[in-house]
Design a protein around this nucleic acid. Structure first.
Lengths: 200, 200
DNA sequence: CCAAAATTGGACCTGCAAGTCCAAAGTCCG
DNA sequence: CGGACTTTGGACTTGCAGGTCCAATTTTGG
C-alpha cells in the first residue's frame, strides 16, 4: 500500500523522522512544532503531510518506532550476549554510559503521556519495546542458569521483570533528579543478588 | 502577600485544585483544557485567573504539589513505620493495591514531561517527592538494621535508592503495559533480598 | 522522450484554547 | 449600615499551530 515511495522519497521521509526525533530529544515532545521539524530538516509543510497524511500524530508514531528500536540497538551487542559475568558488567557499563550521556533528554518519556493515552498504537510500541527488552534479559538469565552461574531456583522471568523495572525507574529518576545514582544502585544490587544466588 | 483570601475564596481555590487534579488523573495533562476544569468545578474563567494569575502553568504547579503530597499520604501509616517484616509486607500490599486501583491514571507522569522540562519549579516538586520517599525507605532499612533484621553491611541509602527506582519503574511499566507484575516482582524480590541479607 | 505519478514549496484557512477585561454581586469589618 | 475589599460571570481578543490546497517541478518506467 505504501509502495509509492521512490528512493528520494524514502530518503526524505527518513530525514524527517530522524530530524523530528532529534528535535524531540532536545526540547521535549510538546515543545516541538511542525515548523521546527521543517526548519530542522529543510522540508516544507507539503512534504510533511505528503509522507504523514494523518499529520502530527502519525509522525510522532514513526518517531516512537524509530526511538524504540534505537534504545535496544544502543545496548548491542552486549544485551544479546549476557553469557558471562564480565558480559553482564559490560552491559551495565554501556547502560550507565548511554544514559549518562543522554541526561535529561528522554525520547520515549513524553511519548507515554503525549501519545500514549490517546493513541493505542503508541502504547503498543512502548509495550513491544519493553517486552523485547525483558525477553533479552530473561534469556541472559537463563543462559547463566545453564552454566550454573545463577541458581536454578531463580524465576528468570520474574527476575528479569524486576531488573527491567529497576532500569526504567533508574532512568526516570535520572530524568527528574539529574543523578545517575539510582540507576547504578539498581543495576549493581540486582546483578549482585543474581550472582549471590549461585553461592548458596 | 497572598493574604487576600477570604474563607470562601480559600474554598474555591481548593475546589479548583482538587477538580483539576481529578480531571488530569482521568484524562491526562495535555487533554485537559481550562474549560474542562471550569465545567468540572463549576467555576468561571474569571475565578481561574483570579486565583492563579499566571494561568495554566501556575495551576498545574499547584496540582503537582497537591498530587505529590497525596502520593506519600496514601502510603501512610505504613511508610513511616517499616519496623518489622509484617510492616514491610503491609506497605508492599498497600502499594500494590493503590496502584492497581489507579491503573493507567498517573497524576505525576505527565507533569515530568509537560511542566518538568520548562518549569524548574515542577522539577523541584517531583525531586522533592522522590527525596522524601527515599528518605522514608532509608529510615525503614536503618531501623531493621538496628534490630538485626537486615545485615549491617547493607548500604541503606543505596538499597533504598534501588528500591525506589524499582517502584518507579514498576509503576511506569504498569502505565505502559497495564500489568502489575513488574511492580510486584520488584517489591517481592528486593524485600526478599534484604531479608536474606540477615541470614548469612 | 513522454506521460503518469511522485515530490516539493509555500500561501492560505481555521479552530481552538489561553488570556484579558470589566461590571455586577457578595463579603468583611469598623 | 456603608465603604472597601474580594469574588464571580462571561463576552471578547489574540496568537498560533495544525491542517488544506494546488500549482510547479522532478523522477520514473515503458
Amino acid at each position: 500500500m505504501t509502495r509509492a515511495l521512490t528512493r528520494k522519497g524514502e530518503a526524505t521521509r527518513a530525514r524527517i523522522v530522524a530530524g523530528a526525533a532529534a528535535e524531540i530529544r532536545e526540547r521535549g515532545v510538546d515543545e516541538v512544532r511542525l515548523e521546527d521539524v521543517m526548519a530542522h530538516t529543510g522540508t516544507s509543510k507539503g512534504q510533511l503531510f505528503h509522507y504523514f497524511p494523518a499529520g502530527k500524530e502519525e509522525l510522532l508514531l514513526a518517531v516512537a518506532e524509530h526511538e524504540a528500536d534505537q534504545v535496544l540497538l544502543d545496548q548491542e551487542p552486549m544485551l544479546s550476549n549476557l553469557t558471562s559475568w564480565p558480559a553482564w558488567v559490560a552491559w551495565r557499563d554501556r547502560l550507565i554510559e548511554r544514559y549518562l550521556a543522554q541526561g535529561v533528554k528522554c525520547p520515549l518519556n513524553g511519548l507515554l503521556g503525549q501519545t500514549g493515552r490517546r493513541a493505542p498504537a503508541a502504547q503498543a510500541i512502548v509495550t513491544g519495546l519493553m517486552w523485547r527488552w525483558q525477553a533479552a534479559i530473561t534469556e541472559g538469565i537463563r543462559h547463566m542458569q545453564s552454566t550454573g552461574d545463577i541458581a536454578a531456583r531463580v524465576d528468570a522471568d520474574r527476575a528479569a521483570a524486576a531488573l527491567l523495572a529497576g532500569i526504567q525507574g533508574g532512568v526516570l529518576l535520572l530524568l527528574s533528579t539529574g543523578k545517575i545514582d539510582h540507576l547504578e544502585a539498581v543495576l549493581d544490587l540486582t546483578i549482585d543478588s543474581l550472582r549471590e544466588s549461585a553461592r548458596t
